[in-house]
Simulated assay, not measured.
Amino acid sequence: MSERASDPDATAVDAPATVGALVHALAALLTDAHVPQARAEARDLVAALLDQPRFWPSLHRDEPVDEAFVAQARRAAATRARGAPFAYAVGRAAFRHLTLDVDERVLIPRQETEVLVDEVLARLAGRSGGTIVDVGTGSGAIALALACEGRPDRVIATDVSLDALAVAGRNVALLRTALCAPVELRHGSLLAPVQDLGAGALRAVVSNPPYIAFAEAEQLPPSVRDWEPALALYAGNEGMACIAAIVRDAAPLLEPDGVLALEVDARRAALAAELAASDGRYTDVAVRLDLAGRERFVLATRR
């Protein structure tokens, strides 16, 4: 008896009708594409598409699956086999306690950015109300987390990409019942969409802006360089252009004691902090570390 025939799921490879058979079929597809740890990847794909814990498929091998879900799972596995990041393959990503829709129009939310939300919440502790702006919102991850966990009157999320705002809009709609504050989407570059609010209108400006220099593109992993949107990755002036613009333009919009919070990379954290410190309109400038101990977050308070 062949190894394939001895597998209890093997008879259902062509037309899987159970979770176990589907995992087996997807693992075969991923193995043919030389995806490492193909069976674990297949299990995780099924779990993510079902919005279940990652080991749920192993405990529910005999659970039936319908043809529509099988087709969806096969499409996800085929996308992963082409080299797409896992989040794009399944069309969703976890961020703090949220599950967000994502695709190639937006950056995949990272765990590091969850720390940025923690830093903002800490700086705003004990203060309710006010308006928070998330600059370059992408999927809406930061804006939605702050609207769920903070106590602002509203959160405004800006992005220069209409494609990104379409994804963010879908996530706002999906999470509407979980929000403690409304999230408003505005189209435009950086802080331009909120200039109409006037001086001192904002309690916090938060951003994970583009900060990769164009010359650094080849240093990025292929899963980032070849799949994630260039508009959200790269910035001029050796990666500092968007950072410098936000530091400059946030100051007049922030209220006294308003918070500026930026996520950058370790190569630019000190430069960003120096920009804020030398601006003269900020105090309490600080650099915070990410989960790996790298300088990653720059925070400042409006004088």
Rank of each mutant, 00 (worst) to 15 (best):
A192R: 05
L162M: 13
T31W: 08
R288I: 02
V117K: 03
R39W: 03
R75C: 07
D118T: 12
A25C: 08
R186C: 06
S6C: 13
V205H: 12
L45M: 10
R74C: 09
R267K: 10
A269C: 13
G136K: 06
G293V: 06
E104S: 11
V46Q: 09
R43M: 03
T11G: 09
A250Q: 00
L231D: 04
A286K: 11
D66W: 12
E216I: 01
R296I: 00
R80V: 07
A292M: 07
G83R: 03
V183M: 10
L121F: 05
A25R: 08
R248W: 11
L253W: 01
R281T: 04
A42Q: 03
H97F: 09
R203P: 00
L30T: 04
G188K: 04
I156C: 04
V155I: 14
H97I: 02
N237P: 00
V23Y: 01
Q219K: 12
P64M: 07
L144W: 13
L275C: 07
G150N: 02
L191C: 00
A81L: 11
A241R: 13
P193N: 07
D44R: 14
R296V: 01
P229E: 01
A272T: 13
A15T: 15
V259C: 12
H24D: 08
V65Y: 05
G136S: 11
I156E: 02
L29P: 01
D118K: 10
F55K: 05
G188P: 04
L299M: 14
A213M: 02
A232P: 01
A125T: 09
A300D: 07
H60G: 10
V13K: 10
L100W: 10
D103M: 13
A250L: 02
D284V: 05
A84N: 00
A157C: 11
V206C: 10
I108C: 02
A181Q: 04
G236S: 06
D101H: 15
G198W: 00
D51Y: 11
L49C: 12
L271H: 15
A33C: 12
D14V: 01
Q37N: 15
A192Y: 01
S139D: 08
A276P: 08
A78H: 05
A181C: 10
A47P: 01
V172Q: 05
A251L: 09
R110G: 02
V65G: 00
A251C: 09
A213C: 03
L59P: 10
A48R: 08
R74Y: 11
A292Y: 11
E216C: 02
H24L: 13
A201P: 01
A272I: 06
E295M: 06
W56V: 11
R39H: 10
G20R: 10
I212F: 03
R248D: 15
G258W: 14
A201I: 06
E114F: 03
V172T: 07
A73C: 15
L179I: 05
L22M: 02
Q37D: 15
V285Y: 09
L233F: 05
F214W: 14
H97Y: 08
R186N: 03
C180Q: 14
D51G: 15
F86S: 02
L144P: 13
G140P: 02
